[in-house]
């Protein structure tokens, strides 16, 4: 990334993060109390904490130009939350694209003055890469919810089926008996 854009992003980092954070919170139901923004205790407001921390990590990664995978843990934290909040997939993931809008608006004047449209395009392509990566995480979270449903059912019933002699487990050592010679 061109240094000019990098410097600008660094310079405006805190205001970009605030606006990005606000745009994410705008996807939640209108709430006059402003709880998700105001409560700073990480245990009393885990959503606010996760997002604040997460977007800071993601933006940091984008600015420093590190691989998308490096931002994975921050993305993961945010998406895990978004994946269980009744959002449609597009809405759950929209927060990533919102960064483009925030950056374009915040750096409007500078972009024009410094002729850094190309760098900006490069930066935005990286956001797109991030979005693709994020989609994988989202799909994994949703798959996990389905798996957990099945898992709970098994947890509830497996020991019962065993007791009723409807299923049985073959002990590992028996299974590994070498003297059985199958011709397959």
């Amino acid at each position: 990334m061109n240094n000019t854009l990098k410097d600008l992003l660094e310079e405006k980092r805190s205001v970009i993060l605030t606006k990005w954070f606000d745009s994410i919170l705008d996807t939640y139901p209108a709430d006059d109390s402003g709880f998700l923004k105001k409560q700073k205790d990480r245990f009393l407001n885990p959503i606010g904490h996760t997002f604040t921390n997460g977007i800071d990590g993601v933006l940091g990664g984008l600015i420093s130009g590190q691989d998308v995978e490096e931002s994975a843990s921050f993305l993961n934290d945010i998406i895990k939350v978004r994946a269980v909040q009744s959002f449609s997939p597009s809405k759950a993931m929209g927060f990533i694209f919102a960064l483009k809008k925030v950056v374009r608006e915040e750096l409007k004047k500078e972009i024009r003055q410094n002729q850094i449209n190309e760098e900006l395009l490069g930066f935005e392509s990286k956001i797109d890469d991030l979005a693709l990566f994020a989609f994988d995480i989202y799909a994994k979270c949703r798959d996990q919810l389905s798996e957990q449903k099945t898992e709970e059912l098994k947890r509830m019933t497996f020991s019962l089926l065993k007791k009723a002699n409807l299923v049985s487990e073959i002990p590992a050592q028996e299974f590994e008996r070498k003297d059985l010679d199958f011709n397959i």
């Binding site: 939640y28 709880f35 009393l44 885990p46 909040q85």
Partner: peptide, 20 residues
């Protein structure tokens, strides 16, 4: 008074005012 508003785990994790 709102003392209870932000104490519910469902409100904290959804931001849905009806869970206050």
């Amino acid at each position: 008074c709102g003392a209870c508003a932000d104490k519910c785990h469902f409100y904290i994790s959804t931001g849905d005012p009806k869970n206050m």
